[in-house]
């Protein structure tokens, strides 16, 4: 058990029901979610569109109130003003005061933390440098591209040198270089001892960045843990073989062991169900006097895991319908 002083974010049975439309139809956005984010880790918050990621983050930021359950930041109760001084937040697809230049924009947020004068000026220059926006410091936000807005948005979240940085889809709208830069920035934050909680659809980024991830679906937690553990547990690792000149009889023997066979002229690509099938397959290939060109164990990716989890949880309701 992690001592609660090391828990930066903690939610217990968090639920949010929205009432929409004239009749107040109930939409459950978050459903009994219990999560813990520990000090110093990079935590990825994953889930398909509409899973409830943004809603959860908005509850944590005090923008909306939960229907039930509790959320704590830095072991402080919800709404404790002390928590907000130690926090940085980048909303999803942010809009900002577009009549300000990036400098003015960051200065404004600095003032909200009681930063003024030369101290603030230095901090703003540092941050503009950090997010690679120094060239646009005197440009109005209305003239910014989406990626540029995302960058000053991240700078805005860091103005108070926060202990916990919460980013709602920080990579969206960024080009590959920008995404790489944000990845490096997140790793830099981790290096300087900060805790980062971010939501994303880009699983590759989550896989390389995160110490732990949570996957939610329809507001419920379906998996949570270290990326490597998650990949080990569910995934039976597939193995890819490329075989030359296998006879039709040989192929018939091989079929039961495979998931997929793709013919490429004389060669064929064979995907085995799991590592356990490798021995048997090699035996068949040997007796059929075919030659083995290559053998590749497939490392399960977070993406595969994610898709499997999401599909697995989706199918029951679909059957009912």
């Amino acid at each position: 058990m992690t001592p609660s002083s090391d828990l930066v974010v903690q939610t217990e049975q968090l639920s949010k029901i929205f009432r929409v439309g004239f009749w107040g139809k109930r939409v459950t956005a978050v459903d009994g979610l219990s999560l813990e984010v520990r000090r110093g880790e990079v935590f990825g918050f994953l889930g398909p569109n509409g899973a409830g990621k943004t809603t959860t983050l908005k509850i944590l930021m005090g923008l909306i109130y939960p229907t039930s359950g509790t959320a704590r930041l830095f072991n402080l109760d919800m709404g404790d003003p002390r928590a907000k001084t130690r926090l940085g937040f980048l909303p999803e697809s942010p809009y900002f005061y577009d009549y300000l230049t990036s400098r003015e924009f960051l200065c404004f947020y600095g003032h909200l933390f009681g930063l003024w004068g030369a101290v603030l000026g230095r901090r703003v220059d540092e941050l503009l440098e950090l997010v690679g926006m120094t060239h646009a410091k005197d440009l109005q936000l209305s003239k910014f591209s989406k990626g540029m807005l995302q960058r000053v948005g991240i700078a805005q979240a860091l103005i108070n040198d926060p202990e916990l940085v919460v980013l709602d889809e920080p990579m969206s709208g960024l080009d590959p270089i920008g995404r790489k830069e944000v990845r490096d920035l997140i790793l830099g934050l981790k290096e300087s001892g900060k805790t980062v909680l971010f939501s994303s659809h880009i699983l590759h980024d989550a896989e390389v960045l995160c110490d732990r991830v949570a996957i939610i679906l329809k507001g419920r937690l379906v998996a949570c843990g270290r990326v490597t553990d998650l990949l080990d547990q569910g995934a039976s690792h597939q193995v890819e073989l490329v075989v030359d000149r296998l006879t039709p009889e040989g192929l018939d023997h091989l079929r039961p062991l495979t998931d997929k066979v793709v013919m490429q002229g004389d060669r064929m690509l064979v995907v085995l169900k799991s590592q356990q099938q490798v021995e048997g397959a090699l035996e068949i290939i040997r007796t059929a006097k075919a030659s083995l060109v290559s053998l590749n164990p497939q490392k399960g990716s977070l993406e595969d895991f994610f898709i499997r989890e999401v599909k697995g949880h989706r199918s029951p309701p679909e059957k009912r319908a």
Partner: peptide, 14 residues
């Protein structure tokens, strides 16, 4: 509507 309030209310501003 423009969500600018998100960044303000998440700062130490009551």
């Amino acid at each position: 509507e423009k969500k600018t309030i998100y960044t303000i209310v998440s700062k130490p501003v009551a």
